[in-house]
Each structure stands twice: as C-alpha cells, then as structure tokens.
C-alpha cells in the first residue's frame, strides 16, 4: 500500500461535499473515481494533495502524514494534472516540463534537473516539440506536456482530473494508454477522475463511485454493473464484454 486516504471530510461554506472518505491505493495501481457532476470527485483529488485543506481527516503516503509536510515536500511525492490544463503560452515545452522540478530547485535548475526533463520528454515522445512554444501545441499535445511535467516531479502518486477531457478519440486512447503504461513501468500509482465509464473500465484496476458525499461503492470492475450505474448516475445501462474487456452500453 502506498496511499491511504483516512476519513477526509470537506465542505464549502454553503455545501457539504465529502464525508468520511476512506480508501487505499497500492503501488502501480490505477484508480478511477466515478460519479455525477458535483459529486465531489475533483474536490476529493484536491483534498488528497492538499490544494484544498480538508476539515477532517488526512492522507498518508508511505506512512508520511501529508498534513505534517510542507507543500514542497508534498509536491515531491504527489503530482497533479488539473482539469483545465494551461501552460505559459510563451514558454517552450522544455521549460514547461522543467517546471515540474520546481519542488526540488533551490536557486536554479541543475544539470540533473535538465537531464530528468530530457529523459521524460523522450519517454513521452515529446522531444520534437521540446523547443516549440506552448501556444503552438494542440490540445492533445498540451495534455501530454502537462503529464510530462507531473512525471518530472518524480511522484509516487499521480492525480489526474479528467485527463481525457476535450480530447478526440485517438488522443483519449493515447493519453489513457500512456497513464496505464507509466503506472506499470514506473511503479507510480494513479488516481483519476473520469466520466467515460468505458475508458475507466479499460484502463483502471480499481474503481470508486461517489454518491451523496460518500463512497457508494469501491472495488474492481465488478462494481460497474447495471444496478450501481442506475443508483449513481440514474441511467439505465447494461455491461457486456468485448475481447474480455467489460463495456458499458447505455439502454
């Protein structure tokens, strides 16, 4: 076990969002968080890496209580790819990815920082874009650049808020495959918020369904069934299999 979410509770001034959220994630595991809009999925991700401070509960990584670590130390253990990805338009892709070394940089980027950045750019096949400005990239390319920036942080856990959002089918598959590969080859755990149940089913090891501020169901692909989909999303659907991969078909 690498990550342990221990009883997180969060509310905005006029609305309770999360109540007693508890779950754990193993090394190299990909976890999908599912639920309707407003169920608190993104809030949960932000509470996990303390962009938002939960009113109760905490998160442990490798037995370290994140509440007791400063934001720099947290950034060395956990990286985050936000829903609305943005880069500094007038910065090169190399500079943007190098920014992932920010939690390690004391005065300026060292040779080691440049080397790690170069390696990740190559790993993600982004080297041909490396010296282009961010504004020259397409949405899919930018998404990859932001994921590369997260990897340069050398995190134990990667948090992704709707990583396939705004991407065409080909790019959705590419980005999701990339996340799957990274988690297995680099032994990084990934927690992602995702709307597309089929993408989630194909690329995740574990699922967490949120409803009414709480975890409604948690487990492997078995929990994505007609009954749970009806309960959580209020839509009729059935689950079939294609090449051994479960697929959700809306009724």
């Amino acid at each position: 076990m690498i990550l342990n979410v221990d009883g997180i509770e969060f509310s905005y001034p006029s609305k309770n969002v999360l109540k007693n959220i508890k779950f754990s994630v193993n090394r190299g595991e990909v976890v999908s968080i599912l639920g309707i809009n407003g169920a608190g999925k993104s809030t949960l991700l932000k509470c996990i890496n303390r962009i938002l401070k939960p009113q109760k509960g905490t998160v442990f990584i490798d037995e370290f209580d994140l509440k007791k670590l400063n934001s720099k130390k947290i950034a060395q253990k956990m990286a985050y790819v936000p829903q609305n990805i943005a880069g500094n338009n007038f910065m090169t892709v190399f500079d943007t990815v190098l920014l992932g070394r920010k939690p390690y940089i004391e005065w300026d980027a060292t040779e080691k920082d440049l080397e790690i950045t170069g390696n990740i750019l190559k790993l993600m096949q982004l080297e041909k874009y490396a010296l282009r400005n961010v504004f020259e990239l397409s949405g899919g390319e930018l998404q990859k650049v932001i994921i590369a920036r997260a990897l340069v942080q050398e995190p134990r856990v990667l948090l992704l808020d709707e990583p396939a959002n705004n991407l065409d089918l080909k790019n959705q598959l590419e980005v999701m495959k990339l996340i799957g590969n990274i988690s297995k080859t680099q032994n990084i755990s990934a927690i992602m918020v995702i709307h597309d149940l089929n993408l989630a089913l194909r690329f995740s090891d574990k699922f967490i369904m949120l409803k009414d501020e709480k975890i409604f169901s948690e487990g492997d692909s078995e929990i994505i069934n007609s009954q749970n989909i009806k309960e959580v999303f209020n839509v009729k659907a059935y689950v079939d299999k294609y090449n051994d991969i479960p697929i959700v078909v809306l009724a």
Binding site: S71, K72, M78, A79, N84, I85, A86, N88, L99, I146
Partner: peptide, 20 residues
C-alpha cells in the same frame, strides 16, 4: 522567478508544484 513561472501555469498547477 520560479514562483512566477509556476503561477503562469494556473493556480492549481502552481499549488500542486508547492507554490504558496
């Protein structure tokens, strides 16, 4: 200067990079 570089990537990204 590194803080400003991070800020330009958006509020949440900057926070996740350890910037107050």
């Amino acid at each position: 200067r590194w803080e400003y570089n991070a800020l330009e990537s958006g509020e949440e990204s900057a926070k996740s990079l350890g910037v107050n």
